[in-house]
Amino acid sequence: MSQNKYLANLKENVITNNPILVQILGICSTLAVTNLISNTLIMTVGVALVTAFSSWTLSLMNAWIPRKVRMIVQVLVISFYTIIVDIVLRAYAPEVSKNLGPYVGLIITNCIIMGRAEAFAQANRPVISFWDGLTSGFGYMIVLVGLAVFREVLAFGTLMNIPVLPLDFTAGGNNWTIMVMAPSAFFLVAIVIWVSKTLQMKKTGGNK
């Protein structure tokens, strides 16, 4: 029984109810960090861990939190884990931490985390809440890394800082500067949502 529950949850959070594609949560940081794959990977791992641990903690504390101060307790728990992520990043990956800048701190206000705490952790046991946070983070990661691959290849001609496209694509001002800038992120998200929504509609029988 438990095995199935975990698998179903994974499928739900990654495919049918993906936090970004379906619920449109956590968009803020999505767009900002996706111009380099390495930044994106580290950021999303951070988000997944914070989501998992805060869901777990909040689910443990559930019985003791008065409903009136629920929000502030959630925010405090989330900030606690975010500070840990921030300190670890600064110690072990100072370069990335500098690139990400304020977006590490913005994990706190990432709606995915609050959303999971509110929608799932409140009504479920700690272990499955932890798993739910982790899978939500994983769904988030897949979309973000996908976007980052497009943006990095088209903007710099590299993949994880390794050149993959011919040099005359990137040199001499031929690269697509727009891919580094803000608008491309919006367009790419729109395309990804379009594709996934169309696929989903086909699966459910092509109803309009």
Binding site: I178, A182, T198
Partner: peptide, 23 residues
């Protein structure tokens, strides 16, 4: 609007154009 773009999709495209104007 194409069915798959309705809702958030087209909103993102609009924001993208706004962002381009602001660039």
């Amino acid at each position: 609007v194409p069915a798959g773009l309705q809702g958030p999709g087209i909103t993102f495209i609009t924001i993208g154009f706004m962002a381009m104007a602001f660039v």
